[in-house]
Amino acid sequence: MSTSESRFNLYHYAAPQAFYPVAGKLAPVFAVIALVLTTVGLWISFFKAPTDAVQGEVYRIIFIHVPAAWMSMFVFLVMAFWSAIGLAMNTRLSALMAQALAPTGAMFCFVALWTGALWGRPTWGAYWVWDARLTSQLLLLFLYLGYMALVAAIDDPRRRDKAGAILCLVGAVNVPIIYFSVKWWNTLHQGASVSLTKAPSMATIMLSGMLVMAFAAWAYTIAVALYRVRVLILERERHADWVRGELARLGEAN
């Protein structure tokens, strides 16, 4: 009974028209969560976490560097997930979700590289080295930018969705390469301080600051992607009567 109901609901919300108002309701909730978590996270990062015994204050970059790097990898995997669903089930909304996530994933990818460079200079003596971790992360940025350029360049929506999905699925191979690069190769970049398989090798307060910032990044990404997918839905479904009604409503509100 409950299975058939939830299945019905999932299919129901796979329709852009049904998802549009849901996204409109959820987005502000996640925006508020992101704001609260960011405030708490920054408080821990700057006022609770102590000075690092080895690195001094510069280690505080970790509170954005690691969450941004996690997010940049995770978002690409989510895009690949939606791409696979879109290709398999031919649902328009899946491709729109992937397209809505890409700019935010690219932003976090750049942030990870930028903060890494500013952290590398004082600790390694170099802004950039061509080690496996840094190089594969740079490749991820190019995959994001390539995806966005490809999707922007194709006029026909079906071809656009399909081409984007294939690029996502092929590019997703790079994500495990980034993640395991510090194990597979001898990199200047350090190994993981936090992993699913062993206890984290850092102080609890530093770890909690990092995790709060990571959850803030999640909430931010969800909120922004939902706001963006609403615009994409209006553009894609503009021939539908409900979109005309919605545009009229928005026009009156403006």
Partner: peptide, 15 residues
């Protein structure tokens, strides 16, 4: 920031 102002604030600022 213990002398690391340009690195720490450069990271947070750009973000």
């Amino acid at each position: 920031m213990g002398g690391a102002a340009q690195f720490v604030w450069g990271s947070y600022g750009v973000t």
